[in-house]
């Protein structure tokens, strides 16, 4: 599955996207977060405070309890500031 990071989250993780295999026992975004946070110190920093993080699964807004499966695109980003 493809994981995307934007804005300051991308700066912390050091990558805009990464391919991973759905870890065993992961069925929601919340389940996935600890696996991603363990990838590097930067990942841990980016995902430290989930209150400041938004999630989109396959380009649709989701939440921590959104179900995910292998092949999904999961994007993490800060609250938006366009306009």
């Amino acid at each position: 599955m493809n994981i995307l990071y934007f804005a300051w989250m991308r700066e912390h993780t050091g990558c805009a996207s990464e391919e991973i295999d759905l870890p065993d026992g992961v069925s929601t975004v919340a389940d996935l977060v600890p696996h991603l946070a363990s990838r590097s110190d930067g990942h841990a920093t980016a995902l430290r405070n989930l209150k400041t993080v938004r999630v989109a699964v396959n380009r649709t807004y989701g939440a921590l309890d959104t179900q995910i499966s292998q092949g999904d695109e999961v994007a993490f980003f800060p609250p938006v500031t366009g306009g």
Binding site: F6, A7, Y61, F77, P78, V80, T81, G83
Partner: peptide, 26 residues
């Protein structure tokens, strides 16, 4: 405009004479 500001995935980074920082959502 109101929906765009809260839903459309854009992020602004301001460059000032004292450095660059991401704009926080209001």
């Amino acid at each position: 405009m109101d929906y765009l500001k809260t839903r459309a995935p854009f992020w602004k980074k301001e460059e000032t004479s004292s450095g660059a920082q991401w704009v926080e959502a209001r």
